[in-house]
């Protein structure tokens, strides 16, 4: 009798985020005819692209059982640098690589702190969160910066009919997915997250591996910063604040464990990011009280995490070794 219940429940729980996503889509679709239109869905994906990209970056870090709290600050610094350069008349061809460089430098700083100096990732990235935010505020002199239109076109221009932000985020996701599933480096990330000491004993260069992961997260944060910037068109002093939490939430919603070694970017993190964005998008379309957005989003994330831990609990319970059948 137990077995039939397992058979029915497990697929449900395994695809909890997907089911939740379907319910959210269906719910908003029923409440507003505007929600499920092609235009809105494409808009939704564009909106979600920034979260998806930073989520991909943090997924790599989480897979190694680390964490990156400095993402929001890196986004801010990248945006601030972009603003400075763009307002100073630099062409996009200079600005964009510069931003990516900023992200990687910050990532490298985190990597240095974590791998060379042996500081806990939580504390190290907490420190660079402060340093980054302060540095960004200094760059902008705590004033909002409006960017030239060239930046906004980044968000609207289309490549073979596909909005550029989607091309970029899609590219990042595709590369990340292939790296994680098909390359030695990707598999080694899972190994490090599962058992760091054993990975070292197995002859992996765990320092270089971890360093790469933090640099990649910084790079993703910078790309995510550009994508956000392209939609907002301005850098405010609070740009990027708490986005690290959104990124972590997207990753965890997508089934990535906070304890390392389990998860992935596709469909995982992407689905998590889109789910978070659809809730927000749906509430906007319904004209809901804007102050309610965070409440609903928090509720949905809580639900997804609850389902995931219920799944793990039941799996552990059912998976208990049977001595005889």
């Amino acid at each position: 009798m137990n077995h039939t219940r397992q058979r029915h429940l497990l697929p449900l729980l395994n695809h909890a985020t997907l089911i939740l996503f379907a319910l959210v889509l269906a719910g908003f679709g029923l409440l507003s005819p505007k929600f499920l239109t092609a235009a809105n869905l494409s808009h939704l994906l564009v909106q979600a692209s920034s979260t998806a990209v930073i989520g991909v970056g943090v997924t790599f870090v989480l897979l190694t059982a680390g964490v990156d709290l400095s993402i929001g600050s890196i986004m801010f610094v990248a945006a601030a640098v972009a603003g400075k350069l763009a307002l100073g008349g630099a062409p996009l061809a200079v600005t964009l690589p510069a931003i990516l460089g900023v992200g990687m430098v910050f990532g490298a700083l985190n990597a240095l702190l974590v791998t060379r100096l042996g500081i806990l990732a939580f504390i190290a990235t907490l420190g660079s969160l402060y340093v980054g935010r302060g540095f960004g505020l200094w760059l902008t002199q705590t004033r909002a910066m409006n960017l030239p239109d060239s930046f906004l076109t980044l968000g609207t221009v289309r490549l073979v009919g596909v909005p550029l932000p989607l091309v970029i985020s899609g590219g990042v996701v595709a590369v990340a997915h292939i790296v994680l599933t098909r390359t030695p480096f990707g598999r080694q990330i899972y190994a490090v997250g599962n058992h760091l000491a054993a990975a070292r004993k197995a002859g992996l260069n765990t320092r270089r591996l971890l360093a790469t992961v933090y640099i990649f997260s910084g790079l993703c944060a910078a790309i995510g910063g550009i994508l956000s910037l392209a939609q907002l068109g301005a850098v405010s002093p609070t740009f990027g604040t708490n986005r690290e939490f959104t990124a972590i939430a997207a990753a965890v919603l997508g089934g990535t464990s906070l304890f390392g070694g389990r998860g992935g970017v596709f469909p995982g993190t992407v689905l998590g990011a889109v789910l978070i964005q659809s809730v927000e998008n749906g509430l906007v379309i319904l004209n809901a009280d804007p102050y309610l957005y965070p409440l609903v989003t928090a509720g949905i994330i809580f639900l997804a995490v609850l389902i995931d831990s219920t799944r793990s609990r039941l799996m552990a319970h059912w998976g208990q070794r049977k001595i005889f059948v």
């Binding site: 702190l113 500081i119 504390i123 190290a124 907490l126 420190g127 660079s128 969160l129 402060y130 340093v131 980054g132 935010r133 302060g134 540095f135 960004g136 505020l137 200094w138 705590t142």
Partner: peptide, 13 residues
């Protein structure tokens, strides 16, 4: 404000 933030971050590190 921003210098304070940077120093604070550095000191935590």
């Amino acid at each position: 404000h921003f210098t304070i933030m940077m120093v604070k971050g550095g000191v935590i590190l």
